[in-house]
């Protein structure tokens, strides 16, 4: 491709965009709105995901050790549990320690436990942390089967709810992205189709004198991609402002609420929107050209 050919592509693309200013403006506007909605939902789900991870990380499973389990077996159990798939860490809590913790929780009514030191009714236990929420159920089942484990408890319902919620969100997300992308594609396709239509005579002559399909396509593809980039960049700017302010507000007012950091996350999001804009513009233009190139 010669440099002056590339210059020609840009010149033609920009000429058309000026000619149809209002239409171009409208389609950038629609693309922009679509991308803001899209970006907003991406931000929301990504943050919910992030929070879910945070909660998941805090989920623990307690495995109670049967009475009369030997010390060697307990040592063996520590080893076996830490090697179970999905286990991040395991900690042995002796019944003495459990009693102490209970005492701490009771606070001023600690005296209720007086006398239990000598005849501790509590059992030894293991505190098991999983590396992700989805594995909690599986780990609990495996623990139950180990010799010397009497009982296993974990926040079963909370875990299942959390898993269902994040999965539903992901599915909804995919549908939304697909739907909005298709809608944007059609908007850009129609805009480009107008400029293609305005140039149909030229296209026909180009075909007759032997211009290659790609030579004819490029100005229109550039138009589509420029529209997509423009829409995505402005939408990215708007999302940046919103998220930047929200992030700062949360950091001060609700500090325990974990939000995704602006860099790199928001920057990645804007980059992805721009790439999406380019792709949608490209395919929109390709589709609007189809019939006119078949001469």
């Amino acid at each position: 491709m010669r440099p002056h050919t590339i210059a020609y592509y840009f010149k033609e693309a920009i000429h058309d965009m000026r000619q149809n200013g209002a239409m171009m403006f409208a389609s950038v506007g629609i693309t922009l709105v679509m991308f803001i909605i899209l970006g907003f939902f991406l931000l929301v789900t990504a943050n919910l995901d992030y929070m879910a991870k945070d909660v998941e990380g805090k989920l623990e499973i307690t495995a109670y050790v049967s009475d009369q389990t030997s010390e060697e077996r307990i040592a063996g159990l520590t080893q076996e549990i830490s090697q179970l798939p999905g286990v991040k860490s395991v900690q042995f809590i002796s019944n003495t320690e459990a009693l102490q913790r209970l005492g701490e929780r009771l606070g001023s009514r600690k005296d209720l436990l007086a006398g239990y030191e000598k005849d501790n009714p509590l059992r030894h236990s293991f505190e098991v942390f999983s590396s992700s929420g989805e594995q909690v159920v599986g780990i609990a089942e495996r623990l139950q089967k180990l010799e010397g484990i009497a009982d296993v408890s974990y926040g079963r319902e909370e875990v299942e709810k959390l898993i269902r919620m994040t999965q539903a969100l992901r599915i909804g997300m995919v549908l939304l992205v697909a739907g909005l992308s298709v809608a944007t594609l059609f908007v850009l396709m129609n805009t480009i189709r107008l400029t293609v239509y305005a140039r149909r005579q030229e296209i026909q002559i180009m075909k007759f004198v032997g211009a290659s399909d790609w030579f004819i396509r490029w100005p229109f593809l550039l138009q589509g991609m420029l529209l997509g980039i423009l829409g995505a960049l402005v939408a990215g700017g708007v999302l940046f402002l919103i998220y930047f302010n929200l992030h700062n507000y949360v950091a001060v007012e609700i500090p325990f609420l974990p939000l995704l950091p602006i860099t790199p996350y928001l920057i990645q999001l804007i980059r992805n929107l721009v790439l999406g804009g380019i792709a949608i513009g490209f395919f929109g233009s390709m589709m609007s050209l189809g019939r006119y190139l078949n001469v």
């Binding site: 005579q201 030229e202 026909q204 002559i205 075909k207 007759f208 004198v209 032997g210 211009a211 290659s212 399909d213």
Partner: peptide, 18 residues
């Protein structure tokens, strides 16, 4: 096909100038 058409010149009844 584009390469073929470069070896053909075409003149139409309705001129087809831009």
């Amino acid at each position: 096909v584009a390469a073929l058409r470069r070896r053909l010149g075409v003149v139409f009844q309705d001129f087809r100038l831009l």
